[in-house]
Design a protein around this nucleic acid. Sequence first.
DNA 1: CTGAAAGCGCTAACAG
DNA 2: CTGTTAGCGCTTTCAG
Lengths: 343, 343
Amino acid sequence: MMHRVAETRRGRPTMNDVAATAGVALKTVSRVVNDEPGVNAATAERVRQAIERLGYRRNEGARVLRRGRTATIGLIIEDVADPFYSGLSRAVEDVARSHGSLVFTGSSGEDPRRERELVLAFCARRVDGLVVVPAGSDHAYLGPELAAGIRAVFADRPAGPDVDVDTVLCDNTGGARSGVAHLIAHGHRRIGFVGDSAVIFTAAERHRGFRQGLEAAGVPYDASLVAMGPPDQARVDADVARLMTGPHPPTALLTGNGRTTLTTLRALARYPSRVALVGFDDFDLADLLVPAVTVVAQDPPALGRTSAELLFRRLSGDNGPTERVELPTRLIPRGSGELPPAP
Amino acid sequence: MMHRVAETRRGRPTMNDVAATAGVALKTVSRVVNDEPGVNAATAERVRQAIERLGYRRNEGARVLRRGRTATIGLIIEDVADPFYSGLSRAVEDVARSHGSLVFTGSSGEDPRRERELVLAFCARRVDGLVVVPAGSDHAYLGPELAAGIRAVFADRPAGPDVDVDTVLCDNTGGARSGVAHLIAHGHRRIGFVGDSAVIFTAAERHRGFRQGLEAAGVPYDASLVAMGPPDQARVDADVARLMTGPHPPTALLTGNGRTTLTTLRALARYPSRVALVGFDDFDLADLLVPAVTVVAQDPPALGRTSAELLFRRLSGDNGPTERVELPTRLIPRGSGELPPAP
DNA sequence: CTGAAAGCGCTAACAG
DNA sequence: CTGTTAGCGCTTTCAG
């Protein structure tokens, strides 16, 4: 079937064009388009034919201008290409869809300025709400947006002190504690920690949990066994080399997140001795490595789902006090975390 | 600093509110907001102060209504949570950003109805253009949108015959041929193919390349060594079992995409004999498995980047004939593809 | 340099 | 059941 180019100046047929074509008033078209009751079946049919003939599609932007809600939310994460965030994204998207909303996605790349830029760009598009994994800790810029009624839920990391928003986190300290406890239960006492930069909330929390885990078992904390920094291979190679070639190398490692686990495994491949390893974050293929990798699993989709559901609860009128949800972690033993201390 | 709630009815300050506060006309505010020349410095400063005081932010939707362009594009993929698509997404997002655009992301989940729904929802939001990885092959629904001036680039898979759009593909047949050639060069003659459902374009193309590769070397094609279907573990387990326990099991396998490679590796873990394997699509950790996995690598970011750049070229006025770009693949030998045929 | 009026495409409110 | 009128927040003429 052929579709003629719209009759209007701008390239797209409008409700007015449809009304003219169908020989009815604008409002009648509006009624048909919005399934409002009280239109004669025959008239409605004429309108529908005109719509079909012109290839008319309602302009959502114009509609929003009148109605207020955009049925759109914004999602800011660190990097869609990271499996942790892509799992979270998918869950947010699914929840949004079930609420009839579309989602703008943006990657901050761990840059606070970019985070701010994205949030404000989304707000200028008048998203109804935001799910944000913050890169920075200064969120004063959100003040006017929140005051204007845009709702926000922070996921994975909390907001700075200047705003009061709902937050969904994972039990970072508890997860790290359980990882350490697991290694200690398997006989380890010299346990290293390879984590992300300490400025990142989750990294700092996991490091805290690591320390607590040692303390709980009466194992002294040794700062020389801790290596925190950016997750690039070169940095991790250097840090692992430092740990493994020191006077008292660790017999076990806790790694601070998915990316770090991979880079650490690569770095470790150069050393003959088998160190035990528990990774924070599960990853595809953990079961296929030799030995299979024991992990403290988070649930990225649950993080996304919980955040988005909380957001939509707010959007549908829940004005109760700010919530802070903490999701549990789960230790999955697969082999690498059960290796005994090397002699 | 405190921000008072907007003085208007609707919750957000408008240009009018700013004008009233600054004691100027609406148009002057507009000029300041848009950095138009010809505003007295002092006046502009008063306006800026009013903006700051009210927490004013331009309503992009209203602006669009007048101007036409939304500075927004839509991206439809199969699943953000799949690393192939998340890599592509990130690249699209980056290109969009460099052109000052925001991106709506949606996952079709391989469902043509959902693909259509997303495309139309994005069009109703008046995106300037679309990058779509199609799930279906009927794209007649796009006709009116294209006629109305929305540009579209299809990525990874071509559009159906009913529309004429730019397309960016990967060299699926060539990649598969090179994988097969590699295995044959290492002495294999009984080579199996485990791929995605044949209805998926890339799967069918890779199967075709597989066949061509055999033919080129004079190795007869044996349909009993081919297993195509959904990438879930159960199906792959069953198919691999069929292949490996048959009268003449293959000594090597070509797997049709990233997910299938993983499920096939899991399935193969149950069999003692070492079959050689080349996987289509590279994946994180391929180097850490034992043996490390030889792959025919695609470049998902390049796919996204190329598609998005083509889209923005169209949006900036390039009306040349429809293009069809094909991106090369690269064989990365790592070990699994160089295993000799089992005795 | 500044402003008033018109209108983008739509829905809300109120007639007939 | 159908239509008219106003106006969402902004930019675009066109006049001062």
